[in-house]
């Protein structure tokens, strides 16, 4: 049996612009590209933020990290943010060591990430900074 990553969407009615997914399993070279495609397929045209609950993702290699960064590029182009939550200690170690924690909004729990998005919607913060306003 090769490694598999399961996706479990958790839509939040108060945040229609946010795609919330819990990932579980082991993310590696053999399934990373497929995971990227599956997450992008779930992302609707009006969604600009992504919350990934990684509590049950017990392994992630460098190709998995590349996938997270590729998703981040898509989300940033839409003016949003990628939040990663509940990092397994094994993932947390790699993310700290590589400085990846600075590329994402890392939150202790999924609830924390959603609370931050409700309090500070990224789109609202970006709008006043348009050059035409200045």
């Amino acid at each position: 049996m090769t490694a598999a990553v399961h996706l479990d969407p958790h839509p939040d009615d108060t945040l229609p612009q946010t795609l919330v997914i819990a990932l579980s399993g082991e993310l590696d070279y053999t399934n990373a590209e497929e995971l990227r495609a599956r997450i992008l397929a779930l992302l609707t045209a009006e969604q600009s933020c992504l919350v990934l609950d990684l509590a049950d993702l017990t392994f992630c290699d460098s190709t998995g990290i590349r996938i997270f960064l590729a998703l981040r590029t898509v989300i940033i182009d839409r003016g949003g943010v990628v939040s990663l939550t509940d990092l397994h200690p094994r993932l947390d170690r790699v993310f700290q060591m590589t400085g990846l924690v600075h590329f994402f909004a890392v939150q202790p729990t999924r609830a924390d990430a959603l609370a931050v998005l409700r309090a500070h919607p990224p789109g609202a913060a970006a709008r006043p900074r348009l050059p035409a306003d200045g």
């Binding site: 049996m1 082991e26 053999t30």
Partner: peptide, 8 residues
């Protein structure tokens, strides 16, 4: 092989 999970 592609079964890296087995190897791990």
């Amino acid at each position: 092989t592609a079964d890296l999970a087995f190897l791990r």
